[in-house]
Design a protein around this nucleic acid. Sequence first.
DNA 1: ACCTGAACACCGTTCAAGT
DNA 2: ACCTGAACACCGTTCAAGT
Lengths: 231, 231
Amino acid sequence: MATHRERPPHALQRAGLSRERVLGAAVALADEGGVEELSMRKLAKKLGVEAMSLYNHIASKDRLLDGMVDVVFSEIEPPSPGADWKQEMRKRAISTRSALNRHRWAVGLMEARPDPGEANLRLHEAVLACLRAAGLSYEAAIHAYSVQDAYIYGFALQERALALETSEEWVEAAERTLRDQQAALDAYPHIADIQHHLAAHGFSHEEEFLFGLDLILDALEERLADGRRGR
Amino acid sequence: MATHRERPPHALQRAGLSRERVLGAAVALADEGGVEELSMRKLAKKLGVEAMSLYNHIASKDRLLDGMVDVVFSEIEPPSPGADWKQEMRKRAISTRSALNRHRWAVGLMEARPDPGEANLRLHEAVLACLRAAGLSYEAAIHAYSVQDAYIYGFALQERALALETSEEWVEAAERTLRDQQAALDAYPHIADIQHHLAAHGFSHEEEFLFGLDLILDALEERLADGRRGR
DNA sequence: ACCTGAACACCGTTCAAGT
DNA sequence: ACCTGAACACCGTTCAAGT
């Protein structure tokens, strides 16, 4: 190590890239402009380098996306096996939703990558460990995991589409719809009713998320009394 | 109509395109090769025409995708308002899943398009009508709709990723994982256990889907006893 | 009204060449 | 070992021109 030669100060040499720097910049770029804004050329420019340099650190754009997805997985807090499984699963679901809201480009990609990254596996392992420690059979654990994840990722998908953040924005959007689309809404009276309801009461993604989450967790708890006895 | 002039038989003139033909070909192309295979140029070639001709029938690729998504919505059987809401919702969920399995490219797009198409609105209206006819309050209807759709679309998302069809394929895949990734699995004992379970018992997407769906519908029925009394 | 060729401003990726 | 320029085979879309 001490014998390592000093790098000569050639102008071309010193970009200082690394897999981590590339991944970090890619995530930041996608966070700002969406995944369709992410091109190898733009990413390179952001790093002060030509596009082809990136290929020294990642094999292809597809592998870049794999890495980015695993960055998102690494931000999700894994459950601990000891404590109350329902509480742990609830925290993990909330943590997942907020990671997906910070990185909206990731929603469709998280479940879509074959061969998962390390952070993905670690989280996966922790969830299974928690459920098994709670006494669930393999079948019950698979069932429980499957419903929860379908719900969490599906909810995030809808939330990404319905881009309104606050309850006030919902009121405003509903009022605008009622004003501008009045004629169209005549054909869809129940949709119109719902718009009226939203204009009057607003809407909270968070509240909505927790309603469904607790519905599912409570129902699982009831059913898994059976699962625990072998079923 | 009778006075309509015969079209002269010029060589360039007679492609006979229409919005419907374009949409149909686009859906077929995406069904075969996935959405990344769908380019304006390839679509045109499939229709025996140059890419630029397509722009006489659809405004842009984005509007093409809008149209394709609405084709998928049109294949989902809407619930009827009179009958048992749980049964109607169950049938509609199953119909949605099978449409999404026929058109796997659509999964991430169905919920992602601003301004919905006609088939989308018609289905949306029918679902709300069914829930309201069953006596649910606006709040309860929104809750019920939201959980169900999150689950349905989220499940389809997972199913698309886990591309294995039959239970036998699952057994085979699990066996291969256990054989090839043995070292890696040492670090993740619970994942390894699940793979063993899958290798022994197989896995059915359909069964899994129905477990979660019925869990949710039953739980909704219980809670909505309150929703019906105004809550 | 519908179709087209040429062109523009982009893509991801390969490959030989530089240091 | 890392970075680059030129090149290849693609994209979506515009625009003027054809019939």
